[in-house]
Design a protein around this nucleic acid. Structure first.
Lengths: 156, 156
DNA sequence: ATTTTATGTAACTTATGAAGTTTCATAACC
DNA sequence: GGTTATGAAACTTCATAAGTTACATAAAAT
């Protein structure tokens, strides 16, 4: 199963959008994420609908944060992405007639349900400001890396 | 993302193998799971390598439990399947140079790590006997379903 | 011994959905 | 009007569990 990298990418973009420039075009963000600008528009489009970012057309346009990092939790972003599946495993049949399979589904659902609750709870607790603060700490620990971000660096 | 149903299917098969017959061929199991016998051999083959089931060729051959249900945890089966990925989400890059992305990965890894620990712990705790006991309870609650399993029912 | 029944395995195809791409419409600024 | 940007539709690619085909191998029945 191929993994969904959208949450990870969105966190990455939004923090750069706060820390390193106030707005960026889809082309610039795509270069940073090593992907395609259409993919950026598609994914950030979901975040715009959720009110996390704004976009502007034409000269000087691009993407901009709509709130401060402290006001955006990972849960907000996950929701903005349409709450994609968290797990790579699942039940073979959703509503089986077989009582054995019902018991199996119940056992698996118990575990997945607990894990999902834990994950959503953590997502709700962690804000982009928390992650940005961790970034700041890493910057202090490795000041030589201050100007190197390992990818095409978008500058104001 | 397409989900991995192997764990669910294996639980289903192994409990039937204890409760409703002592051995079954790949064809019979495939009919029960509504799949292909080669898929059954492939998947049960992993469980055989892990010592959970045995197989015999030729007349009267097929698959058989190697241990009692109480001695097989979901963790054992998950391990026998090669510990496939649990999560449908993940980091965009595994070892990024960008410090922002390192912080992002760390945040996501924290949550996924906790959830994985919870899931593996639960899997280690739950045995097939526990699920079979739940099946027995369901059978008492709905005695009319005693002889109906919702799929091609393999008989001794 | 031959036939039948079964697993073992390699090689290939299919299905699914994120990701990537092409193309063009639309809007804002110069 | 030209340039630069997003918006969106339509399509292709990629990864991998699942499914399929084909055949080798082994055990039991005859």
């Amino acid at each position: 199963m191929r993994q969904d990298h959208r949450l990870s990418r969105m966190l990455h973009v939004l923090i750069h959008l706060d820390r390193h420039r106030k707005h960026a075009t889809s082309d610039e963000i795509a270069a940073m994420l090593r992907t395609n600008p259409v993919v950026v528009r598609r994914t950030l489009g979901g975040l715009r609908k959720a009110g996390l970012v704004t976009s502007e057309k034409g000269h000087g346009g691009g993407w901009r944060l709509a709130r401060g990092l402290a006001d955006i939790s990972l849960r907000d972003i996950y929701a903005a992405l349409g709450e994609p599946p968290l797990f790579a495993i699942g039940n073979a049949q959703d509503d089986p007639d077989c009582l054995v399979e019902k018991a199996v589904n119940s056992a698996i659902d118990d575990t997945l349900g607990e894990a999902q609750a834990l994950m959503l709870d953590r997502f709700a607790t962690v804000t982009l400001a928390d992650i940005a603060a961790d970034f700041d700490r890493r910057l202090l620990d490795y000041p030589a890396e201050a100007q190197r971000f390992g990818h095409v660096h978008i500058e104001e």
